[in-house]
Design a protein around this nucleic acid. Structure first.
Length: 260
DNA sequence: ATGCCGGGCGAAGCCCGA
């Protein structure tokens, strides 16, 4: 089973690009982030015509996540528990049933947190705390679980083109990295790092200042696996070529293959 | 350079992202 995550930076502005990628990559499950539209205006018909069921948590203008699957999606959860006042569409989770068993998959768009001296940074850290708490609950089920998405956290100095440039950025500040470590330390496996030791492999390149041309990237899109999922991990690949296309997202897809 | 690019909104220029 091929499970992918892709921050599309507007599903409407990116529709043809994203549909082309679906046809080429042919994922069984895809997690989308930053769809930037309300659920009712998500282009479900276009994805359904490619053979996908859609579960969507959208909102106007910002954020928005979706879960697409060739198999039916059940037990859909929208939003993380722990703060009823949080109205940002950043989390959707569902169960995909196959002939060989069920997989629980979450599509995650963690807060950016910049500027780091604003209220956005504590919101980011608290949101990560809620993700950690919810993950603890999910792990008690001992399922094949994949938490996929844009975490907006650079794990280590190996995952950024120049750590000194990013040291005070919310994506790399030690508080943010500690939250990601705390999540991983629950027993999750970073699928990409389990398959690839090579440093400086990125999933995001800024639109500005020729970042793509200079390979000034960061690795912030991650597939985190429960032990039951990690045992089935075959490979994990970044679809870097997508960044070189016309009208690209600033993120590229990353996917893993599980023996399911 | 607290910018540079690009999307949403809405019809100019600001907000936001990373």
């Amino acid at each position: 089973m091929k499970i992918a995550t892709f921050n599309v930076n507007s599903v409407k502005a990116r529709l043809q690009n994203v549909l082309n990628w679906f046809e080429q990559a042919n994922p069984d499950v895809a997690c989308l982030q930053e769809i930037k539209c309300e659920s009712k205006s998500f282009p479900s018909l276009e994805f359904e015509s490619l053979g996908y069921y859609c579960a969507v948590s959208g909102q106007k203008t910002y954020n928005g996540v979706a879960l697409l699957s060739k198999n039916k999606i059940t037990d859909v959860r929208i939003g993380l528990p722990g703060d009823d006042s949080d109205d940002q569409a950043r989390y959707i989770e569902g169960v995909i049933s196959t002939k060989n068993g069920a997989v629980r998959v979450a599509s995650i768009y963690a807060p950016n947190g910049n500027p780091a001296d604003s209220q956005k940074f504590p919101y980011k850290l608290k949101w990560m705390d809620r993700l950690i708490a919810h993950t603890k609950t999910l792990l008690t089920h001992e399922e094949v679980l994949v938490l996929a998405g844009d975490y907006n956290v650079i794990p280590t100095t190996d995952d950024v083109w120049d750590a000194t440039v990013w040291e005070n950025d919310a994506l790399f500040k030690i508080e943010s990295r500690r939250k990601l470590r705390e999540l991983l330390n629950l027993g999750l496996t970073d699928a990409f790092r389990a398959c690839n030791a090579k440093a400086h492999q990125y999933t995001f390149w800024d639109y500005q200042a020729g970042a793509w041309q200079k390979d000034y990237g960061i690795r912030i899109d991650h597939l985190l696996l429960s032990p039951q999922a990690a045992d089935r991990l075959k490979t994990c690949v970044i679809d870097k070529h997508m960044r070189a296309q016309d009208k690209p997202s600033d993120h590229v897809p990353i996917w893993c293959e599980l023996q399911v």
